[in-house]
């Protein structure tokens, strides 16, 4: 049940990324290039995702627990610290450099692009490096 639910979730997510154009670095970079030939498409990806999620989460959280678990696992931390801001800043630089965030990198890897494979390999090294440099917390 948990495996099937996760597989379906991943599949829907991947379809959304490939159909929306998020898995195309040219489109992501075109979106970030607000002073150039700006392509606002990804703002609509985000808007569509946010509206569905905001409504859907409200309905889901009316239940006492999710279908496949005894409780919801939702972050409760509300502290804005240097790790959060610094990490997000580093992430954004990487996003602008490659035109990929993690999901689209994995999707383009599945489509067989060698640049995407190189991106994902470097990303996994970066994730490992973060634990080495800053701990697993």
């Amino acid at each position: 049940m948990r495996i099937a639910a996760s597989f379906i979730s991943g599949g829907l997510f991947g379809l959304g990324l490939v159909i929306s154009g998020m898995s195309n670095p040219a489109k992501v970079i075109g979106f970030l290039d607000i002073t150039g030939n700006w392509d606002p498409s990804l703002a609509l990806v985000m808007a569509g995702g946010l509206i569905v999620t905001a409504i859907g989460y409200r309905l889901v959280f009316r239940r006492a627990a999710p279908v496949c678990d005894s409780q919801f696992h939702v972050p409760t931390n509300r502290v804005i610290d240097a790790r959060l801001v610094g990490g997000a800043a580093i992430f954004g630089i990487g996003w602008g450099l490659g035109g990929f965030c993690p999901g689209p990198g994995v999707v383009a890897t599945a489509l067989g692009y060698s640049e995407a494979i190189a991106f994902v390999a470097a990303m996994l090294v970066g994730m490992w490096l973060k634990d080495r440099l800053f701990g697993t917390a």
């Binding site: 829907l12 859907g56 309905l59 409780q71 696992h73």
Partner: peptide
């Protein structure tokens, strides 16, 4: 440069939202 593609962007965004909501409803996770 890429073209503005509002329809596919919205459809893709909605699919991502459905995935996120389905995942919370079943697995209870972000």
């Amino acid at each position: 440069m890429t073209e503005f593609t509002p329809v596919s962007a919205l459809i893709g965004g909605v699919l991502i939202g459905l995935s996120v909501v389905f995942f919370m409803a079943t697995m209870g996770r972000i």
